[in-house]
């Protein structure tokens, strides 16, 4: 443990010494390889530039993309402040040198401008030589070289468009189906919930006056009953109704009360509507219970 700590301490000291030495700007070039390039190849150079205190890169004066010489293009140059003193610069070249035999080519130095203490200074990348090889075998005479043919036109992606067309069309058709079933236009698809609908209608009536609300609410429940049974349900038909829809049988007493209330409301002229709002609430509760049974069916 003590040994390791002392090694770490020594490393730190060494790094500090290195820094003290490189107070002058200093540049390091990295490239993946320096051989096996051909005409058209891209060459990437990664530069790390150490700048002394108070020095900074003059970015407008950085080399801009374009031709470096008659066979070399500077394609891209990106830079990034890696830390207070270190700037990282990525350069991409493209080689357009036509050759007959393998040869060594040299990328000329690149001038990087920086400013220190109000004056501009430059630092140059080192010359970088690399191995370039021809694509056409060296011994081939010119008139024996077969040129590569023209580029062909591309087929239009009719098939994928067709697949997308079918996919979207089926999605739309599914949507239409779902909508239709939701509106009860497809018998058998998507069970209808007449009581749930009636509950929603009653709930929507909350702002109406109690009298109107009771009237419309009773009608809504009657309609739901008729939809459930397939025909209007009258008090005398309750037995048949429960026989056909035994799910609702537990609510028999409530159904009878509902028909009583409905009969009173609709047919008994001048019947005193006492506490209409209580009736409304009872009706809403009844409808909700019916909807619950309907869901469980």
């Amino acid at each position: 443990m003590a040994l390791m700590r002392s090694i770490a301490l020594m490393l730190c000291l060494a790094a500090g010494a290195l820094r003290a030495e490189t107070a002058a700007p200093h540049l390091e070039l990295q490239a993946s390889r320096d051989f096996g390039y051909t005409l058209g190849s891209l060459i990437e150079h990664h530069l790390r530039l150490w700048l002394p205190d108070g020095a900074e890169l003059v970015t407008p004066l950085l080399p801009s993309p374009g031709a470096v010489n008659d066979w070399l293009d500077l394609r891209t140059l990106r830079w990034e402040q890696e830390s207070a003193h270190v700037v990282r610069i990525d350069v991409t070249y493209q080689v357009f040198k036509g050759i007959r035999d393998p040869e060594t080519a040299v990328i000329p130095p690149l001038a990087i401008a920086y400013r220190v203490g109000g004056t501009n200074a430059e630092i140059h990348t080192p010359e970088w030589s690399f191995g370039l090889i021809p694509l056409i075998p060296p011994a081939t005479p010119d008139d024996k070289v077969m040129l590569r043919g023209d580029a062909h036109e591309r087929q239009f992606p009719a098939q994928s468009a067709f697949y997308r067309f079918v996919a979207f069309l089926s999605a739309a058709a599914l949507g239409v189906l779902a909508l239709a079933s939701r509106f009860g236009l497809i018998p058998g698809l998507g069970r209808r919930r007449p009581f749930a609908d009636a509950c929603r209608r009653i709930a929507r009536l909350r702002s109406a006056s109690p009298g109107v609300r009771l009237d419309a609410g009773l009608r809504a429940v009657h309609e739901a009953l008729a939809k459930t049974h397939g025909k209007p349900v009258f008090p005398a038909m309750l037995d048949a109704f429960f026989e056909a829809r035994p799910v609702f049988a537990p609510l028999r007493a409530e159904f009878e009360a509902f028909f009583d209330a409905s009969q009173r409301h609709f047919f008994e002229p001048g019947a005193e509507e006492t506490d209409v709002s209580v009736h409304c609430q009872a009706l809403e509760g009844f409808c909700r219970r019916c909807a619950r049974l309907e869901r469980s069916a």
């Binding site: 005409l39 058209g40 293009d73 357009f96 694509l135 590569r148």
Partner: peptide
């Protein structure tokens, strides 16, 4: 050819033909 290669450095046909063009320059 250069324009083509700038757009796609990997266009090997263009590389080959460009090298030939250099040969007969």
């Amino acid at each position: 050819y250069r324009a083509a290669l700038r757009l796609n450095p990997d266009a090997w046909d263009a590389r080959y033909n460009l090298e030939y063009a250099h040969r007969i320059t």
